[in-house]
């Protein structure tokens, strides 16, 4: 498979969030502001790409019985790098994201890609696959947070776009809206692109 095809497959046609329903936890939790979503997305892209690369490099030397543990430790090491980087350079965002940066470790997308792709494919392919899956994930985060921030705060990336007349919808700041928006997104994509008849 060509690298471009690998990227397209893992980012769009077999997107982890809307096709495989993985990684929902953080996709819902950090989407109240677009800035948080973007930072979280970048963190996941970094972790996915390099964790996939590392796991692919050591795939022939990893005994099958302990591979889950090895994968988890590799992923955890990269997450620690992301966490320290955020704490040092963006302390405010790191505080807002709170435990959700650490929870990248248990994000099912990472284990999913490591198990389904990186443990059987060449390093470069796995690296591209990781970036693709991360981009697909970030895309979903940005779409959800765009809607939530626009209606909940009247702003986009922290810039006020709605005037004084705008009354923020408090439901958009609270938890239920994330569930509804993700459900609508999955519904729309299934009907529009995967020909699921209504």
């Amino acid at each position: 498979m060509k690298l471009k095809d690998i990227f397209i497959t893992s980012a769009f046609t077999e997107n982890s969030v809307w096709r495989q329903i993985l990684g929902i936890c953080s996709a819902l939790a950090v989407t109240n502001l677009m800035k948080n979503s973007l930072i979280m997305g970048l963190g996941v892209i970094f972790t996915l790409a390099f964790a996939n690369l590392t796991i692919s490099f050591i795939r022939n030397w990893t005994p099958r019985s302990v591979r889950m543990m090895v994968q988890t430790l590799v992923i955890a090491s990269y997450v620690i790098i992301v966490d320290i980087f955020l704490k040092a350079n963006m302390p405010e965002i790191s505080k807002q994201l709170g435990p959700y940066v650490g929870l990248i470790i248990t994000n099912c997308i990472l284990m999913g890609r490591a198990e389904a792709f990186a443990s059987q494919n060449k390093p470069l392919d796995s690296f591209i696959d990781g970036i693709g899956a991360g981009v697909g994930y970030t895309l979903v985060l940005l779409v959800i947070s765009f809607i939530r921030e626009l209606f909940g705060f009247g702003s986009i990336f922290g810039i006020q776009v709605m005037g004084d007349w705008w009354t923020p919808w408090s439901i958009m700041v609270m938890a239920p809206s994330a569930f509804f928006i993700l459900a609508m997104l999955i519904w729309h994509i299934n009907t529009r692109f995967y020909k699921a008849k209504v």
Binding site: L182, I186, N190, T191, A196
Partner: peptide, 11 residues
């Protein structure tokens, strides 16, 4: 609706 089967309706 078929598009909502599984995860969609659960969400």
């Amino acid at each position: 609706p078929i598009g909502l089967h599984g995860a969609g309706i659960s969400l």
